[in-house]
Amino acid sequence: MLILTLITPDLYFSPAGSKVLEAFLTITYIDAANGTATRTVIGILALQGAFVEHQAALEKLPSSIRPEVILVKTPEELQRCDALIIPGGESTTIALVARLSGVLHPLKEFIKVKPVWGTCAGAILLSEAVENAKKGGQELLGGMSITIARNGWGSQVESFEAPLEVDGLRNAEQPFTGVFIRAPVVLKLNPTPTSPPIKVVSKLSPDLLPPSLSSPDHSGEPKIFVALRQELTEDNRFHEYFVKECVLSSKNQQR
């Protein structure tokens, strides 16, 4: 399972924000209960960016689902994790420091088999293709069959907040405040027969899209805010999911 959000972590401090985290954790926790692990270990990639915000949000969860949280800077720390969150930051910096720290390859392997959630820069790193990359291209971790554009709305003065309806969250009728800071935008889903299916749980309203995407020429393209990926090569561990329909249908497929 890969969870991809283009929002920034500070929104998790809004009352609605913790819902996403809780849903994410419920899944990994249930999985741990079925297995041998006593307590789920969730790692937060702490190379650069807003990783402490994720940590604080996780530690605020009710004790029944609160995981052990570790900051991940080395391959040894990554090895301890049952799931990983890649925070917002600068994707170019995170990728470079990951390579220099020797965690780039372990991360790629981790993503193939374990749940990973990417926010903002983390979402860029999880994509298979990126537009507005730095000159000469940039390294990605991959894992999600999507094309993403960095800085989809332009510079910081275009950054904004907007309420979002997210399927499958607790109290879903209460909108989720998305914070878009030099945010990336998902341009295309590129599902292939071999890649796991992608479920979109929320879309930004069309009038808030970057002008280039809301023009008639592009109206057919999906405008995605949060995308979830069901990693079907992995068994039933990721089923209790944000999206009820998504969870149920996957279970049926695998049993």
Partner: peptide, 8 residues
């Protein structure tokens, strides 16, 4: 928030 993205 942008400053938070720059941390570290």
């Amino acid at each position: 928030g942008l400053a938070q993205m720059l941390k570290g």
